[in-house]
Computed example of a mutant assay.
Amino acid sequence: MSEKQITILIADEMHPSLFPMLDEAKIGYHYAPNMTRQELLAQIHAFDGLFIRSKTNVDQAILDAAPALQFIGRAGAGLDLIDLDATQKRGIPVFHAGEGNRDAVGEHMVGMLLNLLANISKADREVRQGIWHREENRGYELGNLTVGLIGYGNNGRATARRLSGFGCPVLCYDKYLTHYGDAYAQEATLEQIMAQADVLSLHIPLTSETKLMINDFFVDRFAKPFYLVNVARGEIASLSAVVRGLQSGKIRGACLDVLENEKLSKLTPEQQTAFDYLRTANNVVLTPHIAGWTHESYVRINEVLVRQLLAILS
């Protein structure tokens, strides 16, 4: 790979800091953030690598059109846009920049949770309307709650570090790790989290195994009512199941940075009913998939991508 200049097709929008990094590494690139799928299919054959963010779906058809493809980089944490079975069969390395936005995700999770526990958004709306309710907005302290984290990779660990300053017990569960507990979180089974947690926060990728994992059965298995935080992927949690949990009181409140369907103009009737409930509920905090979307992470993601690329090339 070092005998000729590597060329990368960058098919999604990237922070401009990426380009001087690639120039310094003497890596060629073609930046086409507005490229359509048909254009991608027609041009990908000429490139050694592909960088994507959130727009481009790399499926078998794309891979078939890219006989020279030697690596795929994802500017973000999740790899659900890439057919990993197909890339593995081809022996194409796939890497992501989970390190790049982990601090942003951790801060956002804590911010959403504090907002919910202290009724900040609700109280803000009321005060703007001239309503001054103190007792009705009495909140809860995070330090008295046990937090359970499902997934203890980059984002889970960064979140646990930020929670440590509040003095709350933190339990972590990761099916694919061993001996992963640390100074910030105690390793636990999923059953232990369900028995003890007052807060459940998701830090897992979207896979066939985790899709709609948060369903009625999952919620009912918790020993006590809990707060749900999802800063991972929307399709991990059924919106209807979340609403039923809120209505029954089993879910005390929800912080949702991601939704099962984020194309709000194309919700199914069931999803629309659930969303209409969520957006009017005082014990729900919603943000538009921005947990990892800070000015700093936008640059840091590029740094991680280029560092991993150079490691592969070397």
Rank of each mutant, 00 (worst) to 15 (best):
S2E: 15
D12Y: 07
P16N: 12
P20E: 12
L22I: 10
G28Y: 12
G28C: 11
Y31A: 04
A32I: 05
R37L: 13
Q38N: 15
L40S: 07
L40G: 11
L41K: 07
A42G: 08
H45K: 13
S54R: 14
K55Q: 15
T56P: 11
D59S: 13
Q60S: 14
D64A: 09
P67C: 11
F71D: 03
F71Y: 11
I72P: 03
G73M: 06
D80E: 15
Q88A: 15
K89I: 13
I92T: 09
P93C: 13
G98I: 12
E99N: 15
E99D: 15
D103Y: 04
G106L: 02
E107C: 04
M109F: 02
M112S: 07
L116M: 03
L117H: 01
A118M: 12
E126P: 09
E126W: 09
Q129I: 10
G130I: 12
G130M: 10
G130V: 12
E135G: 03
E136C: 07
G139W: 03
L145G: 01
T146F: 02
T146L: 02
Y152L: 13
N154G: 05
G156L: 03
G156S: 04
T159H: 00
A160I: 01
R161P: 00
R162S: 00
C168N: 02
P169H: 02
V170L: 00
Y173A: 11
D174N: 11
L177H: 04
G181I: 07
D182E: 07
M194G: 02
A195P: 04
V199G: 01
V199Y: 00
L212A: 15
F217S: 13
F217H: 12
F218G: 06
R221L: 10
P225M: 04
Y227V: 09
L228C: 08
S238H: 10
Q247Y: 05
G249W: 06
I251C: 01
I251V: 09
R252D: 01
R252V: 03
D257P: 01
D257W: 02
K263I: 10
S265P: 06
T273F: 06
D276G: 14
Y277V: 14
N282F: 01
N283F: 01
T294W: 11
T294E: 11
S297R: 11
S297H: 11
R300N: 14
N302F: 10
L305P: 00
A311V: 08
I312M: 15
